[in-house]
Amino acid sequence: MPDTSTKTTTDTAVRIEGLEFVEFAAPDPAQLVHFLEQLGFRACARHRSKNVTLYRQGEINFIVNATPGSFAQSYAQQRGASICALALRVSDANSAYQTLLARGAWEASTTAGVMELNIPALECIGGSQIYLIDRYGQDLSIYDIDFKTLPETEAPAEHLQRVSALTLNVCAGRSQEWNDFFCQLFGFSATQPGFVTSPDGALQLRFQELEGEHSDLADEGFASIELSAQDLAGTQGNLNAAGLQLRPAGPQSTKASKRSNDCYVVQHPQFDSSINFLIGR
């Protein structure tokens, strides 16, 4: 009889290879775009037919979807400026999609994605979506086909390099369930209590339990995004100069750093927004 005391059955369904982009929606996209520009992002490409724009800085890709009548726009009507989707890199998107459906994932309820390409989409927390992308790397990109490069009026700043973490609001008592969701479907691992880390170690997800009357399923969703800065002090200065105030994040920082000056919260946007931006190492 094998030792079954801690053995659990099969591995993860799929092992993701990274984060391709984060998709934002906002009731007033211009305000969100201004905020992203203050952070140092610049528009690099625009979709050929939809009101979808790619903003970049460092290795970070942000998509702002302002297409009227889109899933993103209706998400924004409910939640203000928000993260409505993540695009995750996998080695074979269609195969990963079938595997994930067979392991308990749900198809996204609307198929209107940001691209014309048939990108498989799954449902994620709070009605957000996960896209599966296998077209990435040196010579490939998903933006080649459906996006037109914008003439570079201004290059993005170089303050911020990567998306290092995301915080998800979850209902009281549901942290471990969401932990299991990301570990068992996408290959994240529970390296420290309260966090899960992507297979390549680059992205952390933190689960924050909602309390009291705000602990409704409808309140689950992305709460904050942390971006890494090589030169934290310099970045702080640059963002101040662009008109953004920062304050130390303290113990709530998503990377649980012991030193409170390792992570800063950018002032909450002055427009209706359900997410905060954090800057860390």
């Binding site: 659990t8 099969t10 067979a102 392991r103 308990g104 749900w106 994620c124 927390i125």
Partner: peptide
């Protein structure tokens, strides 16, 4: 028994998204 456990894990994952 492992197949049974995998199948239940799939169902548990499915139900997580619906709370």
């Amino acid at each position: 028994i492992d197949r049974m456990a995998t199948d239940l894990r799939t169902l548990a994952t499915l139900a997580t998204l619906r709370g």
